[in-house]
Write a protein that binds this DNA or RNA. Structure first.
Lengths: 342, 342
DNA sequence: CGGGAAACAGAAACCGGTTACAGCGACGAT
DNA sequence: ATCGTCGCTGTAACCGGTTTCTGTTTCCCG
C-alpha cells in the first residue's frame, strides 16, 4: 500500500523479473507473456506502484506540460481563456503551467524559465517583449493568443478591426449618432489597438472625423465605472455614445450611468466587445461583438500539442477566428422579447 | 549560442573539466578555483547552457512546482485567487500547475495525477471528494482553501458565519427589515454553506423566523441577473432584502433591479460578500463583507512551500483570516461622500 | 530432422543533472 | 623529513524511468 518509495527496480525485484519487463507491462508496450504480466501486475497492485512522472519525462525528453502566460488581470475574460486552454490540454494528459506577468519588468526572464519546464507556451498578446518571444520560440513551440506573433511565430486571434468597424458604422449610420468616444487603451493590448483602428476607420469611411484620442483606461469593470464618473458628471455635454474596448468596461459604464439616473439607450448609447454571459442579461442588454474566447485558447493548445509531437518545431501562420456583431438594446436597437433573449 | 542540446557533460568536455565542477560552478556550491570557474563560465556563456529542469528535479527529488485545483468558474474571485497563489509561488521559483475540475466526475483521478507532478497542492473547498483529498495528502502536502479539510489536512479560510450573521443582524435590527431572501447554493461550496448558516443564526438570535430555503443558484454575475428576473417580476411582493452569497451575484441582482426601474435601497436592499473592486464603485455602492482572497491563496502557497522543504509532510491546523463588515449605500446606510469612497 | 522466424526476457546504456567519496598537491607544524 | 590538514578536482554512483540490443526458447515449415 505504501506507494511512496516504490520504483521500477523495486517492483522488478519483488515480481522476480527485470525492470524492462515492468516498464513494458506498465506501458503496455512490447511483448510480454501472460505469466510475466500477471506477476508484475500483482506486484504493482499490491504495493500501489505508479511510475514517477519525473523519471518518465526525463527518459522521454518531454515534460507533458504546456504553459500559459497572461498579464494577471481579473475578470471573466481570463478565466474563460484559462479554461479553454485547460479543457484542451487535460484530455491529452498534459498539465498546464500558468504564469502571471503582472506586467512586471522581470517577466521576460520568467517566461524564458518557463520555456524549459514545458513542451510549448501560449502567450497572451502584449504580455512579454518580442525579443523574449523569439528567444522562447528557439526552444519550444510558441503561439500568441490575441495578438500578432513577431517573426514567423504562430498566432491565434479573433477578427477585431472589421467587426469593430461594422459596429461603429452601425452607430454612425443606422442610429445617426455623432461624438462617439472610445474607451480602452490601445497601447495596452494588440486587441484594443485593432479595435481602436477599426473604430477610426469606420469614421473615415463615412466622412466623419473620429476623436483624436481614446479614453485610455484599463479593461476591468471598475475602470468602466470610473469612466462613467468622469464622463457623465458636471456640465459637460453627454457623448453621443460610449464604445468600449470590452464588455467588462461597458458593463461598468452601464452600471455607472444607470446609477446616475441616466436612461440607456435614450440618454446614452453604450456598446461593448466580447459578449460575456452577463451582457445578454442586463437591462438593457448590451450591444457587443461576440468573440470565441474559449475557442481561441483551445485552438492555441491544439497547435502546441501537435507541434510538441513532432521535431518540426514551432507552428506557423496566423489563424483568425470570426467574430459576430450582436445588436441588442443598449445601442437603441429594439430589444428582443425577453423570452427569446439569448 | 545553440542552447538546445547542451548538457553538463558537453560543457565539461569543452571546458576541459569534470561534470562535478560544472555543476558546482553553475550552482555556486562547493569550492572551485578561480581558474576553473573562469573556464567553465566561459564555456557556459559561449554556448548558452542552462541546466535542464527535469534532470535537476529528478536528482533533487523535487519538482519545484505547486498545484492549484479550482472548479473552473469565471469571475474576479478565481482570477484573484490564482494571482494570490502565483504571486507567492513565483518568487520561490516554483511554477504553478492549475487544474480546472469543471466539476466533472473524473476530477478525483486528475487531482491524484497532479499529485505526482508537484510538491504540494492547494484545493478550493468543494471541488474534489474527501477520499481523493486524503489519498492525495498521503503523497504530498495539501491545503484546502475556503473549506474544511477532512482529517487533519490543513485549511485556510475566511471567517464566514460570524460576519454574515453580523451583516444579517444589521439588516434585521438596524434597518428593521424582514422577509430577507438568501441567494446562493449551500450545497455548492463550503463558503456558501457557512454563510447560509450565519444568515439563519442571526435570524434565530433575534427571534425572527428565517426563510426555510435559500434561492439556490450559482455564483456568477449572470446568476444574479436571473434571480432579479425571477424575483422582481409580476405581482409578487418584493422581498425586504436580497442577501447574496457573493458580490458577483449581488451585482447581477443590482443591475437587474436598476434595469427594471427599481430604486436601491429605497425599493430594495441588496448585499453581497467578498468586496470585489467593482462593489465600491457602483451606485449605490454595495454593502458587503471584505474577504482577503489574495491573502488566502498566498497563505496557502506559503504553507505548501515550507512543508515541501521538510520531510515532515503535510501541514496541520486550520487558519482563519478575519473578515470585515463593509456598510455602504445598498443596505440603506448613508453613502460616504463620493470623494472618500474606497 | 534441420533451419529460420517469431516471441519473449534481461542486461546495460541512456536521459541530464547532483553529490559522496577518493585522490592529489601544497602548505604548515613538529 | 614527515605527517596532517586544507583546498581543489575527478570518478562514479544515483535519481526513476525507457529502450536498444542481445540471447534464449519455442514454433512452424520444408
Amino acid at each position: 500500500m505504501s506507494n511512496s518509495r516504490m520504483t521500477v527496480r523495486e517492483i522488478a525485484r519483488i515480481a522476480g523479473v527485470s525492470v524492462a519487463t515492468v516498464s513494458r507491462v506498465s506501458n503496455g508496450t512490447g511483448q510480454v507473456s501472460e505469466e510475466m504480466r500477471r506477476r508484475v501486475l500483482e506486484a504493482i497492485e499490491k504495493h500501489g506502484y505508479r511510475p514517477d512522472h519525473l523519471g518518465r519525462a526525463l527518459a522521454a525528453g518531454r515534460h507533458g506540460a504546456l504553459g500559459l502566460v497572461f498579464p494577471g488581470l481579473s475578470g471573466p475574460y481570463f478565466t474563460e481563456l484559462i479554461q479553454g486552454f485547460e479543457s484542451e490540454a487535460g484530455p491529452s494528459r498534459a498539465s498546464v503551467h500558468i504564469l502571471c506577468t503582472h506586467l512586471r519588468s522581470d517577466s521576460d526572464a520568467q517566461v524564458l524559465e518557463m520555456g524549459r519546464r514545458v513542451d510549448g507556451v501560449a502567450v497572451i498578446g502584449g504580455t512579454v517583449s518580442d525579443d523574449a518571444l523569439l528567444r522562447l520560440a528557439a526552444r519550444v513551440p510558441v503561439v500568441v493568443i490575441a495578438g500578432p506573433g513577431p517573426g514567423d511565430i504562430a498566432s491565434v486571434r479573433a477578427e477585431n478591426p472589421g467587426s469593430m468597424a461594422a459596429l461603429t458604422r452601425h452607430l454612425l449610420a443606422d442610429h445617426g449618432l455623432r461624438d462617439l468616444v472610445f474607451v480602452g487603451n490601445p497601447e495596452g493590448s494588440p486587441d484594443v489597438s485593432e479595435r481602436w483602428a477599426g473604430f477610426r476607420q469606420a469614421h473615415r469611411d463615412l466622412g466623419v472625423t473620429p476623436p483624436a484620442e481614446p479614453v485610455a483606461v484599463g479593461l476591468q469593470q471598475a475602470d468602466g465605472v470610473l469612466v462613467a464618473q468622469r464622463l457623465l458628471v458636471g456640465g459637460e455635454p453627454l457623448p453621443g455614445g460610449v464604445v468600449c474596448a470590452n464588455d467588462e468596461t461597458a458593463l461598468g459604464v452601464l452600471v455607472g450611468a444607470l446609477g446616475r439616473g441616466l436612461r440607456v439607450p435614450q440618454d446614452l448609447v453604450i456598446t461593448g466587445f466580447d459578449d460575456v454571459p452577463t451582457s445578454a442579461l442586463v437591462t438593457p442588454a448590451l450591444t457587443t461583438v461576440r468573440q470565441p474566447v474559449r475557442e481561441l485558447a483551445a485552438e492555441a493548445a491544439r497547435l502546441l500539442l501537435t507541434a510538441a509531437g513532432r521535431p518540426d518545431d514551432t507552428p506557423h501562420g496566423s489563424l483568425v477566428l470570426p467574430t459576430e456583431l450582436v445588436l441588442r438594446g443598449s445601442c437603441g436597437c429594439p430589444a428582443p422579447s425577453p423570452g427569446t433573449a439569448r
